[in-house]
Amino acid sequence: MHANYDDEQALNQLGENSDVVTYEFENMSSEQLKKLTQLYHIPQGYQAIELLQDRLTEKQTLLEANTQIVPFVQIQTNQDLLKAIEKLGFPFIVKTRFGGYDGKGQ
Rank of each mutant, 00 (worst) to 15 (best):
N27Y: 09
N27V: 09
I75W: 04
Q47H: 14
D19H: 09
D80F: 06
T22D: 00
K104R: 13
D102E: 13
L62Q: 10
N12L: 09
T61Y: 14
K95V: 11
Q68W: 04
P91C: 01
K104I: 07
K34F: 11
V73M: 06
Q68R: 10
V94W: 00
E31D: 13
Q68K: 13
T67D: 02
T61N: 12
Y23P: 07
K104V: 07
S30Q: 06
G99E: 00
S30R: 03
E64P: 00
K83S: 12
I75V: 15
K35W: 02
T22Y: 09
L82A: 11
T96R: 10
L88Q: 02
E58D: 07
Q13M: 08
R55L: 12
F90I: 07
E8F: 11
N17R: 13
E50G: 06
Q53K: 13
N66Q: 13
L51H: 03
L11F: 02
E64H: 10
G15R: 04
Y40G: 00
D102I: 04
T96F: 01
Q106N: 10
A48Y: 12
A10Q: 01
Q106K: 14
I75G: 00
L14N: 05
S29G: 05
N17I: 09
N66P: 03
A84K: 02
E26F: 08
E8Q: 11
Y5K: 06
V20T: 14
P43W: 00
Q79S: 12
Y5V: 06
T67W: 08
S18C: 13
Q32M: 15
Q13P: 01
G89L: 09
Y23M: 07
Y5T: 05
N17S: 15
F90R: 07
D19R: 11
Q60S: 08
S30G: 05
T61Q: 12
K34W: 05
S30D: 12
G45I: 09
L14Y: 00
S18T: 14
Y23C: 11
G103N: 04
N12M: 05
Q9W: 03
Q60V: 10
G89M: 11
Y40N: 04
T61P: 03
F92D: 02
I75N: 01
N78A: 12
V21W: 00
Y101L: 04
L11N: 03
A65C: 11
Q32F: 02
D80M: 08
G100T: 06
L33P: 04
V20P: 01
L88G: 03
Q32T: 15
V94E: 08
F25P: 04
D6G: 09
Q13G: 03
F98W: 11
I85G: 02
T57A: 15
L33M: 09
T57Y: 10
Y40L: 03
E16I: 09
G100N: 06
Y46A: 13
Y23A: 08
K59W: 02
L51G: 03
F98C: 05
F92Q: 02
Q47T: 15
Q32A: 12
A84E: 04
D80P: 02
E64C: 05
P91R: 01
M28W: 03
H41S: 13
V94L: 15
N78S: 13
R97D: 05
